[in-house]
Each structure stands twice: as structure tokens, then as C-alpha cells.
Write a protein that binds this DNA or RNA. Structure first.
Lengths: 112, 112
DNA sequence: GATTTGGTTAGCCATAAGGCTAAGCAATCA
DNA sequence: TGATTGCTTAGCCTTATGGCTAACCAAATC
């Protein structure tokens, strides 16, 4: 599951792949359709799709000679959870600092 | 600020860097402290810190010979927002499909 | 049944990313 | 002031990543 997060962020780190995710948020699409707006060779694009699929963000199946790709519901959850978790701890800490500052006028948060 | 998202996900794509973020969520720390749990040479580790700092996730300043690093509040927001946005469109779509399915008995969208 | 179409596989190339050692430098400490 | 500590810089190496072309295969089409 830690490896899940790994490949998730990895997959989302590339602009082409994020664009594909955004496109797919509107609904499933064929490889060709997804490829069209991207100025790169199909094989190159296909590898991006593979990364997305390996990360679990996307799934696809082939009907005839057309492969249709769609988002996998819930796939973003892991990433969102991680981010939320960080922010939670963090915010709580900032609250504490804030409280502290109100007491001792710490206007230059020199740490540790 | 699309480039913001870019470097954000990029920064979070590496396990060492995510670990540093998790560590820093507990509070600011010196370079040495942050480095300790990681089995890699300091210079290597320093470059991870640089990536984090360049992405805006982290900031640091030097007092004497010690550099202290801390999280930048709100830095994760862009990433969270992007994820939330995708999920929103997506979920709405799935709702529509659900509705559709109730009408026409589309009971197996199972791919793979 | 030949040709197009949509995707796939294989292989090559250049750059980026992540790792290392060695050496340097400024602030402390003995 | 000399040694130690905490980082920093420079440079090198290896692998991963993102891009390409060429050739191929199977499903539609003509």
C-alpha cells in the first residue's frame, strides 16, 4: 500500500499523464481520442497510458481494435488521504505555535 | 501556477522526500536531524531537500552553521485542490452512469 | 482479398534523477 | 588556535524516463 502511493504520485508527476486524467474525468475515451491533443508519437503516448494503468489510476479494455480507457473510481483516494494526513498534523502544530506566540510574543519562529 | 502543481507532484513522487515531509509535519528540524534516519550520503540527501524547497513545500534558514527546515503552510493545497477537482467531476460522472444503469441494466462494466 | 485503421512491439537515443566520493568552508569547541 | 562539526560544492557514475522511428498485427472497410 505504501507502494501504491509511490506509483500514484509518480504517475501524477507528469503533465501529459495529468492531462489524460483530466480528460478521462469527463468520461471514458479511446486511445486514439486521448492521444489526439498531445503532440507526441503514439508509442510514446502509449507508455504514459501504461504508467497510468500500472499505478491503478486507470483501466482499459479492448473491443475489436479499439481500446477504451477509463478512470478507476477511488484510485485518487490514497493520494488524497496522504495529503490530508500531512495537513492535519501540520495544521495542529501551527495552531499550537499560534497559541504559543500569543503568550510569549514569538514573532521570529526560530525553531529547535 | 500549473508549474506549481508540476513540481509539487514531482517532489512528492520520491519516498525519501515524502518521509521528510512526514517528519517535518511534527515540527521544524535541522538538516542533520532530518538526514539521520536515511541511509544515504549527506550530499545526496541535501539535493532532496533542495527539490523540496524549490517546489515550495519547505523553507529553511541558517543560523550559525545549522540550517533549520520547516514546512510551508498551505503548500500542499495546490495538490489537494487538483485531486479534489478531479474526483468531483469524476464522481458526478459515476453518479450519472449509476442512474443510467438503473434504467438500462448496465450491470457489467468490468474491464481488464 | 487488399487496404486502411487503430493499436502494439521492439529498439534506439538524450536527458534527468538519484546515488557516490572528495574536498572545502564557516561556526563552534577544546 | 587547532580540531571538530555541520553543512556545501564539485564532479562523476548508473539507471530511469521520456521521446523517436520502423515494423507489425488484427479488425474494419472497400
Amino acid at each position: 500500500m505504501a507502494n501504491q502511493i509511490e506509483s500514484l504520485f509518480q504517475a501524477l508527476a507528469d503533465p501529459t499523464r495529468r492531462a489524460v486524467v483530466e480528460h478521462l474525468a469527463q468520461g471514458p475515451a479511446s486511445v486514439g481520442t486521448l492521444h489526439a491533443p498531445h503532440a507526441m508519437a503514439l508509442p510514446t503516448f502509449l507508455r504514459h497510458l501504461k504508467v497510468l494503468e500500472d499505478s491503478g489510476l486507470v483501466q482499459s479494455r479492448k473491443a475489436g481494435r479499439v481500446r477504451t480507457v477509463q478512470l478507476r473510481p477511488g484510485a485518487l483516494a490514497a493520494a488524497e488521504d496522504w495529503l490530508a494526513a500531512q495537513r492535519t498534523v501540520w495544521d495542529r502544530r501551527l495552531d499550537r505555535l499560534q497559541t504559543l506566540a500569543e503568550h510569549i510574543e514569538l514573532n521570529d519562529p526560530t525553531p529547535e
